[in-house]
């Protein structure tokens, strides 16, 4: 996804340029491994969902998500898997499910909700679901989680 606001590369005139990659610790897994993992998780999530275990499925998908360069496909798979979970959860179940997650997982969930809303076209399909989850999640975590989703350079 194109997110940079500056279209001209002025950094090539700066000897001591600070790259995006310098601002976070790189993922120790290599991209192929991450992709493989994302696919395995997709399967694991389906079987959890078949057993009606929404909390379990979310915990699986939100654990060490793919970030960093060269993992576009893994990111996409993870997001679409996550959306299937969000879409298939009953409204009354949302808050207890969110409360069962770890703080890390809650923050990651917030990142995916924003990513889902930012994807062109995706908002039309699952916009209301994402907004519903966003509301419930903010009730549990406070605005702190939104702040963390905005600051974190480990973009999912």
């Amino acid at each position: 996804m194109e997110t940079s606001f500056r279209k001209i590369d002025i950094d090539k005139y700066d000897e001591d340029v600070l790259n995006d990659e310098d601002l976070y610790d790189a993922d120790p897994r290599d991209p192929a491994m991450v992709l493989e993992e994302a696919k395995q998780r997709q399967v694991a999530v389906r079987s959890s969902l078949a057993k009606n275990d929404t909390a379990g499925a979310l915990a699986v998908i939100l654990d060490s998500p793919p970030y960093g360069p060269n993992t576009e496909q893994a990111k996409e798979i993870t997001l679409s898997t996550l959306l299937t979970i969000l879409n298939s959860t009953k409204t009354t179940e949302i808050t207890p499910v969110i409360k069962s997650l770890s703080q890390d997982a809650q923050d990651t969930l917030m990142k995916y909700i924003y990513k889902g809303m930012a994807m062109p076209g995706w908002g039309d399909i699952s916009g209301s679901v994402l907004l519903g989850w966003h509301e419930k999640l903010t009730e549990v975590t406070g605005v702190g989680s939104i702040v963390r989703a905005m600051t974190d350079r480990r973009i999912v």
């Binding site: 703080q103 923050d107 975590t141 406070g142 605005v143 702190g144 989680s145 702040v147 963390r148």
Partner: peptide, 13 residues
């Protein structure tokens, strides 16, 4: 320790 404790706040920074 070494020990590191992080408190994630529900509010603004």
């Amino acid at each position: 320790g070494p020990a590191i404790y992080t408190i994630r706040s529900p509010s603004l920074p």
